[in-house]
Design a protein around this nucleic acid. Sequence first.
DNA 1: CGCGAAGGCTGACTTCCATCAGTTCCGTAT
DNA 2: ATACGGAACTGATGGAAGTCAGCCTTCGCG
Lengths: 244, 244
Amino acid sequence: MSMTDQSPLGRKLSAFVALSDAELAVLAGLHQRRRVFVAGRDLVHQGQSKQAAYILASGWVCSYKIQPDGSRQIVDFQIPGDFLGLRSVLLRTSDHSFEPIVDIEAAEVLASDLLKAFADTPRLATAIFWAASRDEAMVVEHLVGVGRRDSDARMAHFLLELGSRLALVGIGSKDGYDCPLTQYHLADALGLSAVHVNRVLRQLRERGLVTFRDGHVSFDDRDRLAELAEFDSTYLDHEGPLLK
Amino acid sequence: MSMTDQSPLGRKLSAFVALSDAELAVLAGLHQRRRVFVAGRDLVHQGQSKQAAYILASGWVCSYKIQPDGSRQIVDFQIPGDFLGLRSVLLRTSDHSFEPIVDIEAAEVLASDLLKAFADTPRLATAIFWAASRDEAMVVEHLVGVGRRDSDARMAHFLLELGSRLALVGIGSKDGYDCPLTQYHLADALGLSAVHVNRVLRQLRERGLVTFRDGHVSFDDRDRLAELAEFDSTYLDHEGPLLK
DNA sequence: CGCGAAGGCTGACTTCCATCAGTTCCGTAT
DNA sequence: ATACGGAACTGATGGAAGTCAGCCTTCGCG
């Protein structure tokens, strides 16, 4: 199976374990029940129970929690190749919501099919658990950012992390990437107000570090940006395949 | 096996699945290699690789990340019955550190033993994954708190959550619990300065909501405290066993 | 066409929390 | 017995980010 044939998930997992053709075939099998969802209408809503998991094939999604007072915290963004709702399979009710940011395509995966795939191809299972662990590490890093970084470093770190993640599934380049997020999304993710997000972006642009404009992020000076963010990507753990 | 014989982990898992004697025996088997660690000396250090997982038997631990600038963010506290480092088994290097807050006892669990237990007793495996999912949900809720709650609500929420968790493993009562954390721990966990933590605690005490003094938390008015915190415990998911 | 909604952008004012610079209290090691 | 270190505690001051209020542009649509 050639590189270009691979799903984004296949591509991502290949960075961790070298998957055999048989394993790739099982993975492809999980992509059967393809569904389309429109931007803005929640896929899963907080408090809902017993929903399937999804593998995102194209488009962007965010997972978030709404507070009783109406404010929301975006926990993470999902990009092609990411799982949605893998964790909440075991908890009775989903503790958060998923909103497609643009129109998306996703493969619905039934818990039973997933478990069968795990039993048949343990290496694939390991790879998927690796991906889940990495997602959790990103949430932790997100928490650190919100708790301990000022708004500039927070934004810088966020934009760099996103760039790294996209690169891993073959989207974007060293210099930047297309990004459909609004300043409101950034605000809800970073724990800032939309007004302040705007000011921070302006500042970073004027300092010649990054430009986020018209749905595109350009790294104007990646090194200085990484320095400001104190960006250390080891938690993303992609140094080439571990298991041959 | 009677209730009082159970390890804290057994007790916690029993709230999710009713475990058979055979399953409880396997679980007890995982507690073989008992070790003791002294307060303050890190169990696992950020950047370290290939360490075992642990089941905490007694005492308190915190997991945290240190920033290059020296500030630290505590990600979570572990109490008896919690796993340490379950997630980082798959990532090459641990992305965070574990520090015992008091002297602790913990069972060291080798990855191979854990996998064998999973293979032999799938229901136990499910229960442990449930616990892992719940831990992740707590980190998410923590992120929400740091991102979207002001310092009072944040503290209130934290103290209530901890009370709920302790109750699940049979520690503390409806009215309060013993708690060895210092105000510095609270500050590092909640993304506040120690000075401000002190003020917030004073305020909550003066308003007659909670008293945290001399290593003991007392809920003076649990209802009003929960209201201030907008505490909704569904993410903790303990409404009695799901699987009979 | 023109209206409204969504997103981006900005200035003025306010608030929450960090920082600095201490003091007090206690337990323990010299 | 006293000196020391860790933790709790406090007042004064400043700064980072929130809130409020408003303007401009673009784009879809009645």
